[in-house]
């Protein structure tokens, strides 16, 4: 029966005669249009980030940690152009390998990116599920595959960017996984479209250089996490360059919730 089925499908379709040139031309035209839309989308996020930057500077001058509520209200409102509305979909593919993370970051925040000495190997295959505190490797369908993580500098400031699967040990939705992982200090905020967000600003103790580190972790509806962490120093723990990190929580949130990380 199986051979018969194969033969039938083969015979029935063998002499189909589509206009191949027209199909390819149409596919290329649609592909170019898609690429233009993607480029425009990335530029929109960058523009939104730039627009928010002015507010961020004012807020950070008035007191670093007080910016939290105002920052997040911009990026997590339902109408925000940077929010991803995605429900019940298969996990997207990543738009880059780990080595491409700094360059993608620089496409959102134009600036000079460089690998940090001693951390020359951005990691592909990053999977917190396989770490000791993770939920263990999962073969459940519908879960994202391994992700990427990279440490680098942006205009001299330390940045860590990671896109990784969220941990199925905490539940089936982005919100459950966010609340499962979040500490009581940071809490977890639902984002329009089914995602969830954790963010914080932390001042390290003197032994760790008194650096200020801003951190955003976005749990996407398709069960990825996008983590962005930026310090006001050349590393996370020393060489303070300015009183505050170069990006506000709102800017990091806009970047983390953008589609730029995914195909």
């Amino acid at each position: 029966m199986n051979d018969k089925t194969s033969s039938l499908l083969d015979v029935a379709t063998r002499d189909l005669d589509p206009d191949i040139d027209a199909l390819v031309a149409g596919g290329v035209a649609r592909g170019r249009a898609r690429r233009r839309r993607r480029t425009a989308g990335t530029a929109l996020v960058a523009a939104a980030v730039a627009g928010i930057a002015g507010l961020g500077v004012v807020a950070s001058l008035s007191g670093a940690d007080g910016t939290h509520a105002e920052d997040l209200s911009v990026a997590t409102s339902p109408g925000s152009s940077a929010s991803v509305v995605r429900t019940n979909t298969a996990p997207r593919d990543l738009a880059m390998r780990a080595a491409g993370v700094p360059e993608l970051f620089a496409s959102i925040f134009p600036g000079e990116v460089a690998i940090i000495p001693g951390k020359e190997n951005p990691m592909d295959g990053f999977d917190p599920r396989s770490q000791p505190l993770g939920g263990g490797p999962t073969d459940r369908k519908g879960e994202p595959g391994p992700g990427v993580i990279a440490d680098f500098t942006w205009n001299g400031y330390y940045v860590r960017a990671a896109v990784a699967p969220s941990d199925p040990a905490f539940g089936d939705t982005a919100g459950e996984r966010c609340r499962g992982e979040a500490s009581s200090d940071t809490g977890c905020e639902d984002v329009a479209g089914g995602g969830a967000l954790v963010s914080s600003t932390m001042v390290n103790p003197p032994v760790d250089g008194t650096t200020t580190v801003r951190f955003v972790k976005y749990y996407t509806p398709d069960l990825w996490t996008v983590t962005l962490m930026v310090s006001n120093g050349a590393t996370s723990r020393d060489h303070v360059l300015t009183p505050q990190p170069p990006f506000t929580l709102a800017e990091l949130t806009a970047a983390a919730t953008s589609d730029a990380w995914f195909d």
């Binding site: 199909l23 596919g27 649609r30 249009a33 898609r34 690429r35 491409g100 360059e103 993608l104 195909d263």
Partner: peptide, 24 residues
């Protein structure tokens, strides 16, 4: 036929974008 042609062109468009992406 028409839906098949549409499906093939959508597929080629997706592959085109992936083929020409800057990163990765």
């Amino acid at each position: 036929r028409h839906q098949a042609e549409d499906l093939v062109q959508e597929t080629l468009a997706k592959v085109f974008v992936r083929w020409n992406r800057r990163f990765g």
